[in-house]
Design a protein around this nucleic acid. Structure first.
Length: 149
DNA sequence: GCTGAGCGA
């Protein structure tokens, strides 16, 4: 949001300079206003590239999965891509020691409810990087949208 | 630099 405003301001200033170079008849403030109008028009024309404030996060019934027996050299993106085949992955957190930074070999994957169910059935005991993954539902902090009542 | 069961600051 604020980054977009900063970019818009920079583009506005650059556009104002360009416009000022084009027509010297226009004053500087008029060129600035014209540049602002142009930027506003461009931002309103293409909202697909500028309006999505965050990533393609999945909003809905989400469930946190526990992933154990992970290889130490695996990265979060690989786990994310692996689980993304069965459902929209919201976030991946690989647990590592905070002071030493060494990986503990397990992590948590937050994804959609249905995708988590499918991923649990497909990726449990799945041979990944010469390791057998252990996928279980997380014990605490179950669903963020489906509260217990 | 290492390891192998593990539910997270």
């Amino acid at each position: 949001m604020q980054k977009s405003l900063l970019i818009a301001l920079i583009v506005t200033v650059i556009g104002a300079v360009v416009i000022h170079q084009f027509g010297s008849a226009l004053p500087a403030y008029a060129a600035f206003i014209l540049g602002a109008v142009i930027v506003a028009t461009v931002l309103s024309i293409m909202p697909n590239s500028a309006s999505p404030s965050s990533d393609a996060k999945y909003v809905g019934p989400t469930k946190t999965l526990y992933v154990g027996n992970l290889p130490y050299r695996v990265h979060e993106n690989e786990v994310k891509e692996l689980f993304a085949k069965y459902g929209p992955v919201n976030s991946v957190r690989l647990v590592r020691d905070r002071k030493t930074g060494r990986r503990k070999g397990f992590g948590f994957v937050e994804m959609s409810d249905t995708g988590a169910d499918k991923a649990l059935g497909k990726l449990n005991d799945y041979s990944f990087q010469e390791r057998t993954l252990k996928v279980r539902e997380a014990r605490s902090q179950e669903s963020s949208s489906d509260r217990e009542q």
